[in-house]
Write a protein that binds this DNA or RNA. Sequence first.
DNA 1: TTGTCGTATAGATATTTGTCAATATAATAG
DNA 2: CTATTATATTGACAAATATCTATACGACAA
Lengths: 95, 95
Amino acid sequence: MDTCEYAKIFKALGDETRLKIFEMLRGGELCACKILENLNITQPTLSHHMKILCECGIVMARKDWKWTHYSLNCALLSGLIAHLGDTKCRRNTEE
Amino acid sequence: MDTCEYAKIFKALGDETRLKIFEMLRGGELCACKILENLNITQPTLSHHMKILCECGIVMARKDWKWTHYSLNCALLSGLIAHLGDTKCRRNTEE
DNA sequence: TTGTCGTATAGATATTTGTCAATATAATAG
DNA sequence: CTATTATATTGACAAATATCTATACGACAA
C-alpha cells in the first residue's frame, strides 16, 4: 500500500456524504436502498458515491438478487489505522 | 468532534501533495522551507496547502523568528485513530 | 413479451479545487 | 530608510467534482 492509495481512501472519506455512508457501514452491512433512506440525495448520486468508496477499496459490494449490499473492508481499514498509528508522536511538553 | 470535522481532516489528507506533507511531518517537526525542498510545487502553493492542513487541525504551526515550523497535532491524530478503530469489524467468514 | 424493481451509466452544469505568477507582509540587518 | 528573507495573500484559470434528470441494464414475475 503506497501513499497514493491512502490518498485515494482519504479523498473518498473527505466528502461529507461519503463519510456519512462510511459511518453507517461501521455498524455493519447495508443495502443501497437502506443507505439512500438516510441521505437527502438521489439514487444516481448515491450510486456515484458508492462507486468511489468501492474503487478506493474501503467498501466492498455484494450482490444478492436485486439488492447490492455494502460493507467495510475491515482488513484495509485495519491497515490504515495501523499506518496512522505508526506516527512518531512526542509529548508536546518536551523534546 | 463531529463527522463534519473528520470530513475536513480526510479532505485535507485526500490530496496527494498534502498527504506527502503529512507523511513528512510524521517524522517530526519541519520548517516550511524544508518541506518545500521535497516537493515540486511553488512556495505559494505550499502555503496554500499548509493553510488547509492547519485549518482542519491536524497540523500545527509554530513561528520562530523568520521560520514557521509545522508539526502534527498528535492529540487530534490519536482521536481520529481511536474513532476509526471503534468500528464493528466482523471476521468476514461468518456472521 | 411486458412490467416492475433496484441499481448503474450518460450527459449537463454549477461549484470547488490545485496551481501558478505577482504582490504583500513581517521581521531583521545594515 | 532600504534591502533581504521566509511566508502569506491575491487573482486567474484549467481541471476535478457533486449533483441532477433521463435513460439503460439485469433479474425476476405474470
